[in-house]
């Protein structure tokens, strides 16, 4: 899965551009969406936060479950992808996805992140990860995330 680090993101949208270029997506559709939001911090300063909305490739994905024509499928690697030619554009997937990830192209076919499977098979990182100039995105398996966090905590504790 692709992990987003909000502490690093500077809102440059390079990931969105990289995604669109990689997959030739039209305006309106993208595999990754960066949201920005302003808030006041403790000192009364305005701060901008960013958050990337990314497909999580859920193990038991609601979009796969709900697609009436079985256009959204999960492959053996756990990557959830959509067969555009099968998609009818009913938008049930976007309504069922708790992160509202599915977007639609100009032919009203659902498009979403496919983890750049061709790039991964070629030994590359997904376009958004490779395109991020501040390394706010990383592709990591859940097990790796868990180990990284657990080790990191111990390391932090040891440096006290």
């Amino acid at each position: 899965m692709i992990v987003f680090n909000p502490d690093r993101c500077v809102g440059c949208y390079a990931c969105q551009v990289a995604c669109k270029v990689e997959r030739g997506l039209p305006a309106g559709a993208c595999g990754i969406t960066v949201l920005s939001y302003e808030s006041l911090d403790g000192g009364g300063e305005r701060r901008v936060h960013y958050r990337a909305l990314l497909c999580h490739h859920c193990a038991d994905a609601p979009c796969v479950r709900i697609c009436p024509v079985r256009a959204v499928t999960r492959d053996k690697n756990g990557i959830i992808s959509v067969a555009s030619e099968k998609c009818i554009g009913c938008r049930l997937c976007s309504l069922s996805c708790p992160h509202s990830i599915p977007s639609f192209n100009d032919r009203q076919q659902m498009t979403k992140c496919n983890l750049c499977i061709e790039r991964i098979e070629a030994g590359l990182k997904p376009a958004c990860v490779a395109g991020c100039p501040v390394a706010a995105l990383e592709i990591e398996a859940p097990r790796e995330i868990s180990v990284r966090k657990r080790r990191g905590l111990l390391r932090k504790r040891c440096c006290l």
Partner: peptide, 8 residues
């Protein structure tokens, strides 16, 4: 649904 958001 296994989205791993909790892990993040």
């Amino acid at each position: 649904i296994g989205c791993a958001e909790c892990l993040q």
